[in-house]
Design a binder for these strands. Structure first.
Lengths: 190, 190
DNA sequence: TAACAAAACTAACACTTGTTAGTTTAAATT
DNA sequence: AATTTAAACTAACAAGTGTTAGTTTTGTTA
């Protein structure tokens, strides 16, 4: 099953947006990259804003869906956290450009698109926070300020795409092994 | 000693750039925010690009200067890492807008400004990497992939400004206490 | 008060922006 | 072969962009 023209546009756009940012890419730039004229894009999409919205909501929804599943599983909080970290690695591999775009350009979403994105993000953070709280309640996690942990772990996971761009050589296996170690157990020898 | 008009422009610009991004802010927006006309800005600065360059290089240089000092100190690697974390917290407090701007908009630096920024950033990462290597050599740090640690710690430190924007209520003291714990010793009870 | 410098102004420039209208070409279906 | 549909095209729009030139206002110093 091949890609529709619309999907091709979105994939190309996500790469360009990642490289130079949403506002720095004109519809003429995007069209040129696809070998057509700017006006032709409008046979497939309704606005530049729609492209950004589709790119960002696509991955946002995937993240939220995954954490909602994990959240309900009968697992220790540590197992849940490990599963979440793995999921971030997987999605980052699959949707590198989309993810970079989400991180850098969500601020340029307008009206309804922005609202939907923020809702999904809040839902994700809330579930993540509850999993951490579960860990504290069950005595598995240290008594560290919850918001600091939420911030520090999620920030690292959200920006994994930067790491991929720089270090294609390093094995994904290494990341899958050492990232959970780093985030959960720290870097200092005990 | 009061601010020069040029400094006022840069401070206002850093706030606007943080809020909406470099490309989304026009010289007319910036001027309006200062209660003057766009053309008047050019009595004080030479281009929009210069404003971005000054904002970003200011903090970049401060970071590099600090790590160069720490680097040479006779301290254990752990003490050095703690000092670096404290420095990030301090600079983030003092230059929240500048920092957000550096993280989000460095990509829009041109030519010489971009080159100088990237040089400073590489210098910083290199020193940071060497400190981690020292820690591994001296047996203080675990045997975790170096690049993963560099990435994960620096990412968190670089985006502290996001945290400040959201959580003004939480004490800085909490952050100074719990962030080093989180990053160095992990979140799982041993 | 006259002279000077700092900092604002108006007006305009050349260029780029997202998008629309209407038309032509290419491919698929009847 | 005729018809329909998808996808490209040209041309143009109104609005916004960074920046320059030349002028006027404001505040300070001689």
């Amino acid at each position: 099953m091949s890609l529709t023209r619309k999907q091709e546009i979105i994939i190309t756009a996500s790469r360009l947006f990642k490289e130079r940012g949403y506002n720095a890419i004109s519809m003429r730039d995007l069209a040129a990259e696809m070998g057509i004229k700017a006006a032709s894009l409008y046979n497939h999409i309704s606005s530049k804003q729609e492209i950004l919205g589709l790119i960002i909501l696509k991955v946002s929804e995937e993240f939220t869906q995954h954490i909602n599943t994990i959240y309900l599983d009968e697992l220790s909080s540590i197992k849940k956290l490990e599963a979440i970290i793995q999921n971030h690695i997987e999605i980052t591999l699959k949707y590198t450009h989309h993810l970079a775009c989400m991180n850098n350009d969500w601020i340029h979403l307008e009206d309804e698109y922005k609202q939907r994105y923020l809702n999904l993000r809040n839902e994700y953070e809330s579930k993540f926070r509850q999993i951490l709280q579960q860990g504290k309640d069950e005595g598995e996690l240290k008594d560290i300020d919850l918001e600091i942990v939420v911030f520090s772990v999620l920030t690292t996971l959200r920006t994994l795409h930067i790491w991929y761009a720089k270090k294609t050589s390093i094995q994904v296996a290494t990341l899958q092994q050492d990232l959970p170690k780093t985030l959960l157990y720290g870097i200092v020898k005990s």
